[in-house]
Amino acid sequence: MRAAVLTEFGAPLTVREVPAPEAGGGEVVVDVLAACVPPYTAEVFSGERNYPLVPPVVPGVGGVGRVVHVGPDATRLRAGDLVWCDSTVRSRDDALAPDITLQGWSSRGDGGARLAEHLHDGSFAESMRVPTENVFPLPAAARSDPARWAALTVHAIPYGGLLAGGLEAGETLLVSGATGNLGSSAVAVALAMGAGRVVAPGRNQAALDLLADRFGPRVRPVRLTGDEAADRAAMSAAAGGPVDMVIDLLPPRAPGSVTRTAAMTVRENGRVVLMGGVGMLGGEDLVLPYRWIMRNSITVRGQWMYPRSANVGIVRLLASGALDLAPERVRSFGLDAVNDAVAYAAAHPGPFDRTVLVPPAG
């Protein structure tokens, strides 16, 4: 089969023939129909993000595909099924704290690196091998436009964070990083889950206007100035009442002060969920006042990716129409144009811009 291979960091991907994947026990082989290309992909492939990929590797973080082969432990999946392949792979020998790798993308710790050796290659290929438990059937509606449904790669992440924070219908949420690719997804997903209002701070006025136009008065945009006190006051005023929860999805280049400003708008007994990359490439880390956290009984939680059950929930939101994919701007590229796709994704990182690799069209 053909695949896009990262031969070394800093080099363009090479499309070439590689051995077709074969499923072992507890695994499924899937023909890839569509794989999302995140806006920061070029930073991963250049080595700037220091992801623990080991070249040569077929990268790619999840995707939509069609089942080719299932193992004996699959009782409901069948060859020909349209499925979503979740990249978040967990070790099977520790139910409490399993090691994790993002197949074809990243990993956590020594155990995650060992998983990545076994499930080395991702979705930038004609076919891929996936653990059985990471394959989720998609509704018939996805058959007509699998490239659009590849946005599951994006939407599943903030959905996991909102679940971790216990977002309830009618609550007020503040999304730190709302004008970015993941942050704007968090706005859409929160509203689909029933949030009463969403405060959306950011510096990009055009992106703020887009969010307001798409979602109406339930979204409260706030233009940030960089002055912590003024920005905190503006966000609190826009909420029109207590902020029940804050979710941060800012990228690594963002200063910790922006996350802190947003987090400290949350009410007494409120929740703060951290899912972004602040401080991961050096620079200012996040500092929250001990006294403020303790006296106000604030819950601060980190969340990397999402639990397995979140895949079912996010597919349901899409299938029901509560989370609408129709307004999203999707640009598809064939496998031979993978480097063009990476460049396009980097140049189009805004709200609801999706860059998708469609290997069969290569």
Score class of each variant (00 low, 15 high):
Asn204Pro: 11
Tyr344Ser: 00
Arg354Thr: 10
Ala207Asn: 05
Gly80Thr: 09
Gly279Tyr: 10
Val273Glu: 00
Glu268Met: 11
Val67Gln: 07
Ser107Asp: 13
Trp149Arg: 08
Arg308Gln: 15
Gly240Ser: 00
Leu33Thr: 08
Glu268Cys: 05
Gly183Val: 14
Glu328Ser: 10
Ala20Arg: 13
Pro72Met: 09
Leu281Gln: 12
Glu171Tyr: 00
Met264Ala: 12
Gly62Thr: 08
Ser184Trp: 09
Ile100Ala: 02
Ala142Ile: 06
Gly111Pro: 08
Ala195Met: 02
Val83Gly: 05
Gly109His: 07
Arg197Glu: 00
Ser297His: 14
Val32His: 03
Val70Asp: 06
Leu152Ala: 03
Ala212Trp: 14
Ala230Trp: 08
Asn296Cys: 06
Val199Tyr: 01
Pro359Ala: 03
Leu323Tyr: 03
Ala42Met: 11
Asp31Lys: 14
Leu162His: 02
Asp93Val: 14
Pro98Lys: 10
Arg2Gln: 14
Glu8Pro: 06
Pro19Tyr: 10
Gly47His: 04
Thr265Gly: 04
Asp340Lys: 05
Leu82Gln: 10
Ala74Asp: 13
Pro251Val: 05
Arg232Lys: 08
Pro289Val: 14
Arg291Lys: 12
Met305Phe: 11
Ser236Tyr: 03
Arg218Ile: 10
Ile157Phe: 05
Pro251Ala: 05
Ala230Pro: 12
